[in-house]
Design a protein around this nucleic acid. Sequence first.
DNA 1: TGCCTTGTTCGAGTTGTGTCGAACAATATG
DNA 2: CATATTGTTCGACACAACTCGAACAAGGCA
Lengths: 99, 99
Amino acid sequence: MAAYDHPDPATFELTVVLRALADPARLEIVRHLARVGEANCATLIGTRPKSSMSHHFQVLRDSGILRTRIEGAQHRNSLRREELDTRFPGLLTAVLNAP
Amino acid sequence: MAAYDHPDPATFELTVVLRALADPARLEIVRHLARVGEANCATLIGTRPKSSMSHHFQVLRDSGILRTRIEGAQHRNSLRREELDTRFPGLLTAVLNAP
DNA sequence: TGCCTTGTTCGAGTTGTGTCGAACAATATG
DNA sequence: CATATTGTTCGACACAACTCGAACAAGGCA
């Protein structure tokens, strides 16, 4: 499978990032990745079907919040913390620290 | 006209706040209020009709982002910076500093 | 009282977004 | 090769959200 396209930090859009974070399922994914560093999709699926998860990962990827690295049959996801913090200083930290 | 109900900071929901901020029109309103401190609705209307603006103000008010003070026929809006920062430290600042 | 200003409310229309099953693609593994 | 595992893609559906005109309410003012 071909590698994913990840947007350049200079093109990150605030409204797009905020909208990506404004969903409970995606917020959960982001919080989980912040804890474990890297995870494949399967370990992040709770009760939701794969197709729903795939959708959420795409939204997060397209907004610039996470990157997906392909290793064999697995897709390893991790937060793009540095890039995000360069473009929107303090934003991700504030979201992760929020109750 | 009766005063508005403003939610208690303890009940602010992160996803609700993020969704409220994730709209270009509302982000513009928030940025404007950050500059001028307080403003009535009329001065914030660009080309959009009043009914659209009223909707956006309600979303911002219900999420806890701004408060509306009634003075005669005018509704004066201002950001709830302290309350927001108590509940979600650094969030509003990060959003306001973002490009 | 009559009129203007300021905003809200209502209803309809349109678009956007999340959800999910089914089919598909790619990679391991026996 | 056959099969299981991991994710994506597609299509359809439901629901939430934005937009906007029209009608309404409340204040200020002549």
